[in-house]
């Protein structure tokens, strides 16, 4: 038995074979060394696939920023990162992602709170889980259409506000076609992602803690501020980072709404369709590098926070 280190393994026997007691198993792994070395070959397809379509593209993406037009190695391209347009697009990306992540996290956490105590396998949770998955991971172009139909020039909310209150949300140009306008759809897909990522942490709150606190005379407010919130804090901030990373790397929604640049993924698109900054080659690679650095930092802190949060989720 070599694989008993699975953290949340719940050994469950299903089917008739398992019901007979198996104490005499000789161990499937205990075969001849010849077979063992041959079995390594089983990794070949996966390894080859991942190297060709994940490792190589990722390396090319980052490395291409370090090569000049003549094919030689250079650090000169990095000066694209000081270009005002590029700086502005990084600022735009960071701003939109940060605002959407924080707003999405707060609303999503509220939804998780509301879902506490409902049955995880119940219809309500299944519907919310499925809807969250769709909106968080599937949206892209389609969410752009949804928001055009909502707050675009002829959008239903636009018309309603105009006709009822005489207020035009698109008064200074179309809201949705400017960078801050992206916050709307980005928040829209951040909230469901928050529900998906934060719910396990929320469910990790043991009812015994609440009872213990109440027995010691704590009010519910004290329970929340002194027990639940400190316990949930790492998971919450971890989720904020994940939401941020998700917004930061998202492309499809923005591409469907905006034709010009303004956030980093759109700038990469502009660079790839050859609208280069003067004197700098392979700007797309430099931008990809910049994005990746931010993503790696964010995901590093995310995994730190997750590890901390996992302490309470046993």
């Amino acid at each position: 038995m070599t694989t008993q280190s699975i953290p949340d393994a719940r050994p469950r026997a299903r089917g008739s074979i398992a019901s007979s007691s198996i104490e005499t198993g000789t161990g499937a792994g205990g075969t001849a060394p010849r077979r063992r070395s041959a079995a390594w070959l089983g990794f070949t397809p996966f390894a080859a696939y991942v190297v060709i379509f994940l490792a190589i593209p990722a390396v090319i993406a980052v490395a291409s920023g370090f090569f000049g037009a003549d094919g030689g190695f250079t650090l000169a391209n990095l000066k694209a990162l000081t270009d005002p347009v590029i700086i502005k697009s990084f600022q735009g990306s960071l701003l939109v992602s940060a605002v959407s992540a924080v707003v999405g996290a707060v609303i999503g956490a509220l939804v998780c709170f509301a879902l506490l105590g409902t049955k995880a396998e119940g219809m309500l949770r299944t519907v919310i889980d499925s809807a969250s998955s769709v909106l968080a991971q599937f949206g892209g172009v389609m969410l752009a259409f949804a928001f055009i139909a909502t707050v675009g020039f002829q959008g239903i909310v636009t018309l309603y506000l105009k006709n009822t209150f005489g207020f035009d949300i698109n008064a200074d140009g179309a809201l949705l076609y400017k960078i801050p306008g992206l916050i709307l759809p980005y928040t829209y897909f951040s909230v469901p992602l928050m529900v998906l990522t934060f719910m396990p942490a929320m469910e990790g709150l043991k009812s015994t803690w609440g009872e213990a606190a109440a027995t010691l005379g704590a009010t519910r407010r004290q329970y929340w501020t002194r027990i639940a919130m400190p316990v949930l804090a790492p998971a919450f901030f971890g989720s904020v980072l994940l939401l941020f990373a998700n917004c930061f790397s998202s492309f499809a929604t923005a591409a469907a709404l905006l034709s010009q640049g303004g956030i980093v993924p759109l700038s990469i698109k502009q660079q790839l369709t050859s609208e280069t900054i003067v004197g700098v080659s392979n700007t797309a690679g430099v931008l990809a590098l910049g994005m990746l650095v931010i993503m790696v930092v964010v995901m590093f802190f995310y995994s730190l926070l997750q590890r901390r949060a996992a302490r309470w989720q046993r």
Binding site: L54, P57, V59, I60, V62, S64, S250, I268, K269, G285
Partner: peptide, 30 residues
């Protein structure tokens, strides 16, 4: 090879850290 599980998990989760827009820059030449 249960010991390789960590590595496999890392590789399979990696595409979340590398945004598709970054991968695309590398996909074009590939």
């Amino acid at each position: 090879y249960p010991r390789v599980r960590r590595v496999l998990e890392f590789v399979c989760i990696l595409p979340i850290t590398v945004p598709s827009i970054v991968l695309v820059v590398g996909f074009v030449p590939v």
